[in-house]
Write a protein that binds this DNA or RNA. Structure first.
Length: 529
DNA sequence: CGTCCCGTTGGTCTG
DNA sequence: CCAGACCAACGGGAC
């Protein structure tokens, strides 16, 4: 059967390793490449901010241009996705819709709705996995139905599965010539809108440009240095270097401008030629597998992006403090290292992984004791590489709510950054107000004398805020809170377990009595004293 | 069931 | 300058 097909781009904004689009071209006499720009969805479900809008529109423009070069086009149709599909299926006599399979609940729901429409209107739906290395369902099965909760265990499952599927071949003009492009006139009617058309602020000083072409260009630049690729070890990269010390390819992966499978195999080839190469978790390939790890856990965990109702997430009564949250979000904490990070995030939409750690630890268990969900929302809006599963997973990690539990390890907002950038060049770049501050004080400018502040041209408290908390005091306090939370949690777990096993009141009482509760060393010391 | 090992990237001190 | 011990001590998972 020769189909009339709509290929629906959602992520996967690329022509290389695009299995669903390839299948569309091979099975159709006409293919309509469509991107549905659903602004309400983007704003209320995806929560994308201005920088991400720019990145998306640039990616669409690049995709349109590449499709045109191959004799096709891209139709960007604005509207609610279900009614757009319904309208055009009838208008264009569509018999097939192809799309990438995605794992986020809202994208799954979208696909289910399109399948429902297919049954109603009589078209077929073909979805193929293009955004991840493995089928997460297979990983779950091999782990006995539950997601592996440690990376090590996850890797062991992957070893059973072997290498991921190889990428499909690049699309060529011949592929597109075998079937007709959309009618003339449609391309003009459904062009890629400009930011101003969508009332998005036009100015953008982000150094990241969206699109497959730019992504491939950056990828080639990095892969050219084979020694660097082979010896890459993540923790040794520098969070506050003025240019990214990692690949900075994440925005392109999150939107599917680059294929993770293609990258995986490019890395494998380089490793095969190198005498020595680093290994997961710290290697470059290991980074791709971290992404996969969080996808897997997220796909099998209810309420993964929330605390409430999330079975793997520690339940904590975080403070609600709109003012402190706002100051954190808008780079006004008074800790230059944290504020520089948040400034880079706001201006460029990308910060180093360790910088994310520092900022996240500060907001949650480190200093402010504000819910990781709030931080996650801010990152979702501002990070170009924001990804549903990875974002939530890392916020739980950093807040010691799941995956990571050694809550005594707290990032110091003063000393952590100073280790790799003692002169504070990163701070000077993103907080120009502190440009002339002496290096000695730049991570804690409030310790400079009035005279020194005057000389540096920045009075703390007037030109730049005082720190919003005393880090030492706050982190000690939070440490105690975290200890309490964990003891409480144990008590609750004990209660529910015994409830299920043995409802007898006597047993409950016995197990909940003081001497049967676990004691921290600190508690034991107090007792002795 | 208990015990022990170890974990992608803290901080501090010592040798 | 760097490696390693220690801090205080969690929880998943192996045994």
């Amino acid at each position: 059967m020769r189909h009339h097909t709509i290929h629906l781009f959602r992520k996967g904004l690329r022509l290389h390793d695009n299995p669903a689009l390839l299948a569309a071209l091979q099975s159709s006499e006409v293919v309509y490449p469509v991107y549905i720009l659903d602004r309400a969805f983007m704003t209320s479900v995806m929560h994308i901010g201005a920088l991400r809008w720019h990145f998306l529109l640039q990616s669409l423009e690049d995709l349109r241009s590449s499709l045109c070069q191959l004799g096709s086009c891209l139709l960007v149709i604005q509207g609610e996705y279900e009614s757009v599909v319904r309208d055009h299926v009838q208008k264009w006599n569509i018999t097939q819709v192809t799309l990438d399979e995605e794992m986020e609940p809202f994208y799954k729901e979208m696909e289910a709705n399109i399948r429902g429409l297919g049954e109603e209107l009589g078209f077929e739906v073909l979805s193929l996995m293009g955004h991840s290395l493995y089928n997460t369902q297979r990983i779950l099965e091999l782990n006995g139905g539950t997601p592996p909760l440690t990376y090590k265990r996850f890797l062991r499952i992957l070893a059973l599965l072997g290498d991921p599927e190889v990428p499909v071949r690049n699309l060529t003009a011949e592929d597109f010539q075998r079937c007709s492009p959309p009618e003339l006139g449609l391309a003009e009617r459904y062009g890629v809108p400009l930011p101003t058309d969508l009332k998005i602020p036009p100015e953008s000083i982000s150094p990241w440009r969206g699109g497959e072409s730019e992504g491939l260009h950056r990828l080639e630049q990095h892969l050219a240095d084979q020694g660097w690729v082979a010896s890459f070890t993540k923790p040794k990269t520098i969070p506050n270097s003025l240019l990214p010390s990692t690949t900075g390819l994440s925005p392109y992966f999150s939107m599917g401008c680059l294929s993770v499978r293609s990258f995986f195999y490019r890395l494998s080839n380089i490793y095969a030629q190198a005498k020595h190469h680093s290994l997961p978790p710290v290697s470059l390939q290991g980074q791709l597998l971290w992404r996969e790890f969080f996808y897997t856990v997220a796909s099998a965990t209810p309420n993964f992006t929330k605390m409430a109702g999330n079975p793997i997430c520690l339940q904590i009564r975080w403070y609600e403090d709109a003012e402190r949250l706002h100051r954190w979000k808008t780079a006004q904490t008074g800790f230059p290292w944290i504020d520089a990070i948040m400034t880079q995030l706001r201006q460029e939409g990308w910060i180093h992984h360790l910088a994310r750690h520092a900022a996240a630890c500060f907001l949650t268990r480190g200093d402010l004791w504000i819910s990781w969900e709030e931080g996650m929302k801010v990152f979702e809006e501002l990070l170009l590489d924001a990804d549903y599963s990875i974002n939530a997973g890392n916020w739980m990690w950093l807040s010691a709510s799941a995956f990571f539990h050694q809550y005594t390890r707290i990032f110091c907002p003063v000393r952590f950054g100073r280790r790799t950038d003692p002169e504070g060049e990163y701070i000077r770049k993103y907080l120009p107000i502190l440009k002339n501050f002496p290096s000695k004080y730049i991570y804690e400018p409030w310790t400079a004398s009035e005279e020194e502040q005057k000389q540096a041209g920045c009075i703390i408290g007037r030109d730049y805020p005082f720190p919003m908390v005393d880090h030492k005091e706050a982190s000690d306090h939070n440490l105690q809170l975290m200890k309490q939370v964990r003891e409480e949690q144990y008590r609750t777990a004990q209660l529910t377990r015994d409830d299920a096993d043995d409802p007898m009141e006597m047993k409950l009482k016995r197990d909940l009595s003081e001497e049967n509760l676990p004691k921290t060393k600190a508690a034991r010391m107090t007792e002795q004293a």
